[in-house]
Nucleic acid binder design. Structure first.
Lengths: 124, 124
DNA sequence: TTAGGTGCAAAACCTTTGCCATCCC
DNA sequence: GGGATGGCAAAGGTTTTGCACCTAA
């Protein structure tokens, strides 16, 4: 069973009080203001636990390794959460979205990426 | 100026001949069939160069570090390519997309992420 | 000729893990 | 009490980098 600990509580509090999408290291620094003795291992372990519990989410897709592809017509991806394979999709890319976001935000939008996730045929 | 090297050529060839979105390590293994003496450093360096030249692209967003956020209503992100900051967008999330992709592919689609890229207001 | 590129190995980074002490239920 | 969790430090895995030697232009 899951126990309540000060460490986990503070990590979650930090994430709930920011909109800055911090890295593990930034979270660590922030948490140390409350818990000067917390270790990085604990931060990482709790970030995982909190993800399992759906209390937080990681923006980055699939951990640390980069994947590459030759430049093609722009397209979206599907990543299987079990086997980790990445597939190209036929779904048409909506370029209007870039303009719409640009208009709303005032940012210069050059492109967007979309990734669907779930289970591929082999893994269902 | 950029010179043509056998190493870069083979790396690009490998990426053009696959749809498997390989990692740097997988590319390295593949390239070594042609160039047994190539080093990993060279692979990494060329993957960067090829990205600069827009000949290839990395699927992963923003290198190796993960960023986290507390769970919120699902939403899309914008990442500034200059300062690296990530912003939440108001753009409505289109859940129909999941169903459409699922129908087309036969995959089980649980969710999707979208990230827009460009320059934020401060960096333009 | 010479600036850009390569190989090699070490370093840098980020993340995970083993171990033992500690704490929550 | 006993299993879950934490702190610490070492290990692991990926990517970057310094340096001396090469090579395309």
């Amino acid at each position: 069973m899951r126990r309540d600990t000060k460490q986990r509580e503070v990590i979650l509090k930090v994430l709930r009080n920011t909109r800055s999408h911090p890295t593990a290291d930034q979270i660590y620094d922030d948490v140390r203001k409350d818990l000067p003795n917390i270790s990085k291992g604990t931060v990482y372990r709790n970030l995982q636990v909190l993800q399992e519990d759906k209390a937080i989410s990681a923006l980055n897709i699939n951990g640390t390794q980069s994947r590459y592809e030759a430049k093609r017509e722009s397209h979206y991806h599907f990543r299987c959460e079990k086997c980790g394979r990445v597939f190209d999709l036929d779904e048409p890319v909506d370029k209007e979205l870039n303009k719409r976001v640009s208009k709303k935000t005032g940012f210069t939008v050059s492109h967007h990426q979309m990734e669907f996730r779930g289970l591929c045929k082999d893994c269902q």
